[in-house]
C-alpha cells in the first residue's frame, strides 16, 4: 500500500491534468493550423508558423482592444483597492455608531445579482453619455462588497497594540495606513488586486452592452467579433485570437496562484 499510493496519485494527477488543460492545448495547436490542415483532422500542427496571429491582428484592431482591456482592468483594480480599503479601514479602526448595521448593509449587497440592475444602469450610462467611454467600463465597478469584506477580515487581525502605539506616536491615519496596514495585509491586497483584474479582464455582458464601436471595446468582445466573422472560414485565426486573449491572465495566474489561493481561502473562511 505504501508503495502504491504515490504511484496511483501520480497517475491520477497526470491524467486529470491532461484532461483539464486539454482545451487550452487544443486551442494552442489549432492556432498554428491552416484551414486545409484543419480539415484533415490533425491534432498536432506540422509547422509552427505565425500566419494566423498576423491575420488576427490584421482583421481587427486587436492591439487597440488589448490596450482597452489592460487599461480598464488596471483602473478597476486600483479603484476597487482604494474604495474597499477606505471602507474596511472605517469598519475596523473607527468605533462609530451604527457600524454593525452599515456593515450588514454592505454585505447584503452581495446578494443583489448585478444582472438585476443592468437595465437601469444601462439607461443611466446612456443619459450620462458614457456609451463607448472608459468611464462606463470602470466607475460602476469600483465599489465591491467582497473587497471590503476581504480586507476587513484581514485588518481585524492587526494587533490592537500596533494601532495604540501609532496613536501615541501621533501618526496620522494616513501614515498609519501606509506604514502599518498595507505592509501587514499585503496578501489580501494582492489577492483582491488579482481578483479585480481577472474579473474585469474577463467581463463580457457589460462591455457588450456599453460599447458599440472600437473606441473602448474590450478584447473579449473583439474575440466574439472574430468568432462571428471567421468561424465559417478560418478557425486557426479565431484560436490565435483566443491565445492572445488568455495569455495575459494565464501569466498573472501562474505568478500569483499561491497568493491568490491563500487570500481567497482567508476571505472564504473567516
Amino acid at each position: 500500500m505504501k508503495i502504491f499510493r504515490p504511484v496511483i496519485t501520480y497517475m491520477l494527477l497526470i491524467l486529470t491534468a491532461v484532461i483539464v488543460f486539454f482545451p487550452v492545448v487544443y486551442a494552442f495547436f489549432i492556432s498554428f493550423m491552416s484551414g486545409a490542415e484543419l480539415l484533415q483532422g490533425n491534432f498536432i500542427p506540422k509547422t509552427f508558423h505565425l500566419d494566423n496571429y498576423q491575420k488576427a491582428f490584421e482583421r481587427l484592431p486587436l492591439a487597440h482592444y488589448l490596450w482597452n482591456s489592460l487599461f480598464v482592468s488596471t483602473v478597476v483594480m486600483l479603484g476597487q483597492l482604494l474604495v474597499s480599503a477606505l471602507a474596511a479601514y472605517a469598519f475596523v479602526f473607527i468605533p462609530f455608531k451604527g457600524r454593525n448595521i452599515i456593515f450588514f448593509i454592505f454585505i447584503s449587497t452581495m446578494m443583489i445579482p448585478w444582472e438585476a440592475t443592468m437595465i437601469p444602469n444601462f439607461l443611466t450610462i446612456q443619459q450620462l453619455d458614457w456609451i463607448n467611454n472608459y468611464q462606463s467600463l470602470t466607475i460602476p465597478f469600483f465599489a465591491i462588497a467582497f473587497g471590503t469584506f476581504l480586507l476587513r477580515q484581514h485588518f481585524l487581525t492587526i494587533p490592537k497594540e500596533l494601532k495604540e502605539a501609532s496613536d501615541i506616536a501621533g501618526l496620522r491615519s494616513f501614515r498609519f495606513f501606509w506604514k502599518v496596514v498595507i505592509p501587514y495585509c499585503r496578501t489580501s491586497f494582492v489577492t483582491l488586486g488579482a481578483y479585480g483584474f481577472l474579473t474585469t479582464w474577463n467581463m463580457y455582458l457589460w462591455p457588450l452592452l456599453v460599447t458599440n464601436n472600437d473606441d473602448a471595446r474590450t478584447v473579449q468582445i473583439g474575440l466574439k467579433q472574430l468568432q462571428t466573422q471567421e468561424m465559417a472560414t478560418d478557425w486557426g485565426v479565431v484560436m490565435a485570437g483566443v491565445i492572445i486573449v488568455i495569455i495575459p491572465t494565464l501569466i498573472l495566474l501562474f505568478l500569483g496562484q499561491k497568493q491568490l489561493q491563500k487570500g481567497l481561502a482567508q476571505g472564504a473562511l473567516k
Binding site: 486529470t16 491534468a17 483539464v20 488543460f21 482545451p23 487550452v24 486551442a27 481577472l198 479582464w201 474577463n202 463580457y204 473579449q220 468582445i221 474575440l223 466574439k224 483566443v242 486573449v245 488568455i246 491572465t249 494565464l250 498573472l252 495566474l253 501562474f254 496562484q257 491568490l260 489561493q261
Partner: peptide
C-alpha cells in the same frame, strides 16, 4: 497551477 489555470481563461475564450 494546471488545475487553477481555467480561472485565467475568460468566458469568451
Amino acid at each position: 497551477t494546471i488545475y487553477s489555470s481555467t480561472m485565467g481563461v475568460s468566458v469568451a475564450a
